[in-house]
Design a protein around this nucleic acid. Structure first.
Lengths: 159, 159
DNA sequence: TCAAACCTGGATATGTTTTGTCCAGTAAGG
DNA sequence: CCTTACTGGACAAAACATATCCAGGTTTGA
């Protein structure tokens, strides 16, 4: 059960976009974002498109165009980023094996009560999501060593 | 980020093994466990081997052999099962992209402080694991509708 | 004793997802 | 009108999940 690498990319890129916005350098072209962390441009673009579809970023086409955050970094959480890249599905997918084999003859109403395994898994994922929702892009930006933001802005704005 | 189907199988199978133990019918052969939920035997066997390596189950070779829980169901949690099947790695793998591209020239000591993204992801996974650890196989068995356990024992003990 | 019923580990095959590239189409600025 | 950008779709390679099979070892009961 490994998470898409795109989640890491997207989280860091969102922090960059936040810094760019603060410095008045938004929007930032995808090529520049890829260069900032030496990521494969074409593939990063795919992840950025997912962020856009999820409403976290908006993009400006044409020359001097690029990508920017669609709302303040304080209102974009890691949960939003994970959901945008990974999609809406839970990690655990209950396939209701309890209805098969020795229970195949039972009527469907015998399984009205949700499966205990699925329920516990769901609760655990909710705890995970709550924790992710507790950290915003602004929080991540704020926890970065001093001066790093200014350096990033300088890089992003460079010709 | 989807979880192995084997986790669902293993959780349900552990509940079956608990019931079998209660009824004095342990150990249970893998073929019988597979039949109980109509699972592909050979592949279920692989998952059972993972449970064994993790110390959750022990197996008895030879005729009248099979698999049984290695300790009381109350002391086996969903966390144990997930870790046994999925392996020890976190879902989120930090690849330290922050050190690349615009930061490639920085000395390693600039990154002594762990990455904020990785830290937040780690905290969220810990919350997930804590939640999983709060549910034991005995809890799952206890939340099953009355009579289901006896039926399962009857099936597992059948010729 | 020996055959049947078990488990183990490794090799192998197949299908799906992730990762990554490329291209044709569209939009905006100078 | 040409360059720089984004978008969406098609496509390819690698990684992983799923599934099967086989050769080797253990125990039990006939």
């Amino acid at each position: 059960m490994r998470m898409n690498e795109g989640v890491e990319w997207a989280a860091h890129v969102c922090v960059l976009l936040h810094w760019a916005e603060e410095g008045g350098d938004a929007p930032v072209p995808a090529t520049r974002l890829a260069a900032a962390y030496d990521l494969p441009t074409a593939y990063l673009v795919k992840q950025l498109q997912a962020l856009g579809r999820a409403g976290l970023t908006e993009s400006v086409p044409g020359r001097r165009g690029g990508v920017r955050l669609a709302r303040p970094a304080a209102r974009i959480t890691l949960m939003d980023v994970v959901a945008a890249i990974e999609g809406p599905d839970d990690a655990f997918a209950c396939t209701e094996i309890r209805r098969q084999g020795m229970n195949a003859e039972r009527p469907a109403r015998d399984f009205a009560q949700p499966c205990g395994v699925a329920h516990a898994m769901r609760e655990a994922e909710l705890a995970w999501r709550r924790a992710l929702a507790a950290t915003s892009i602004a929080d991540l930006a704020g926890s970065t060593p001093a001066g790093r933001a200014a350096d990033a802005r300088r890089f992003l704005a460079a010709p």
